[in-house]
Design a protein around this nucleic acid. Structure first.
Lengths: 218, 218
DNA sequence: AAAAAAATTCAGTATAACCTAAATTTTATT
DNA sequence: AATAAAATTTAGGTTATACTGAATTTTTTT
């Protein structure tokens, strides 16, 4: 059984490791869990002794099989709760994160199975991120950045790179949400801004800063 | 902001004090929070310094106004989550408690307001206990023990004194639940067992041990 | 290869929550 | 009122978590 803090570390290591493909370094982890590198070193020793991470001093860490299983369970819970908050309790994108951070630590197998069923076994959370199955498998859609799309190409907004409140709120004002249909009408050479037909009925212009933070499934 | 443990102490003090009408003593509290009296003394000093309890050494404690407000908020959250688990996720009576104990500590005003709305502003939890409003007010029904009812008297099962798993499961086999209609057909002098008409269509016999653990609203 | 910079660890401190054992206070009994 | 019993608190110590600042190790740059 992991403590609240141990779970947060495991989750952050998974997130920073890009699905456990790269080592994660102490300083980056310290920033992610909002603590000091010295505290991280303490914790890494503990996680190592619990066989959750592969750890050689100064060499960065990766998750063991057991560690990755834990990480995926936490992510599963986090994302299911986000679906619940948005679909059932009418939370907006930018309100869910803080609460889901707490709910993801509730310990109950039955609860999460029943919640999954109650929500209709969703495959993606409100940000478009895939929800791992109970066995730790995620469905991944083929997706590219909006900024990488070509003229006349179509797709559907599937996921966001930047999930800050300010970005989410700005997308709201543009009328863009997960699932929005998109077709590229034009790309300006001058500033790489993109003219887009949204849901087949509205024309909007998107700056490069925005287009590099939206993933589209094609 | 209270810690997880402080919240548990406050909740237990409220429960043991009978709506803050009696002092609560260290040994009883130690048993309730499953720790030693010495640890309770430590904690009482902390709660006193945070102005949550009225505390004079050796004299037992009561909650201050602030302490009682905290207690009612926790109880409100606990009972709303119980309604959610039973009504929406199909938990049985005996499965809800452990999970609600965790969920009651989630910190989010918005979450609990929205949950209340989503559940249709319930006044009672699945055990029949009243749910405090956001302002800390509870609706209380006139209720007596089934064992105190007279022959031919009618009522509705409203609340349980014993909430152990074994009791809840036994009630399930009898077909008794919160809201069941009850009419007393006969009371045996010999062992105080009660013959009851359940929901106007079934006749069952209830032992004294069971009848003294069921509250009925009349 | 030496020096500088970056990353990491070590040593010591703080707080929350708990423990045991001993001392103190209150309550009950003679 | 004195004594015994029960309840409670104090004293002193432990463990988990996470902090700061100093020392060490690794990496990068010259």
């Amino acid at each position: 059984m992991l403590t609240y803090t141990e779970e947060n570390y495991i989750k952050c290591i998974y997130a920073l490791s890009d699905d456990n493909k790269k080592e994660v370094f102490t300083n980056d982890l310290a920033e992610a869990v909002k603590t000091k590198p010295a505290s991280v070193s303490d914790m890494l020793k503990r996680l190592h002794s619990k066989k959750l991470i592969n750890y050689k001093r100064y060499k960065g860490v990766t998750l063991t099989r057991s560690g990755k299983e834990h990480a995926l369970k936490i992510i599963r819970k986090h994302r299911l709760w986000e679906v619940f908050l948005v679909d059932k309790l009418k939370f907006t994108w930018d309100q869910v994160h803080e609460v889901a951070e707490q709910l993801e630590h509730i310990q109950s197998q039955l609860l999460i199975e029943r919640l999954d069923e109650f929500l209709g076994y969703p495959a993606y959370d409100p940000h478009g991120d895939p929800i791992p199955s109970a066995e730790g498998v995620m469905k991944i859609k083929k997706q590219i950045l909006l900024s990488e799309m070509k003229k006349n190409q179509s797709g559907e907004v599937s996921c966001l790179k930047d999930t800050s409140s300010s970005f989410l709120q700005y997308l709201d004002t543009l009328g863009i949400e997960i699932g929005s249909k998109i077709k590229i009408e034009d790309i300006a050479d001058y500033d790489r801004s993109v003219t887009v037909i949204l849901n087949k009925n509205r024309k909007i212009v998107i700056s490069e800063k925005v287009s590099t933070n939206i993933f589209v499934s094609i």
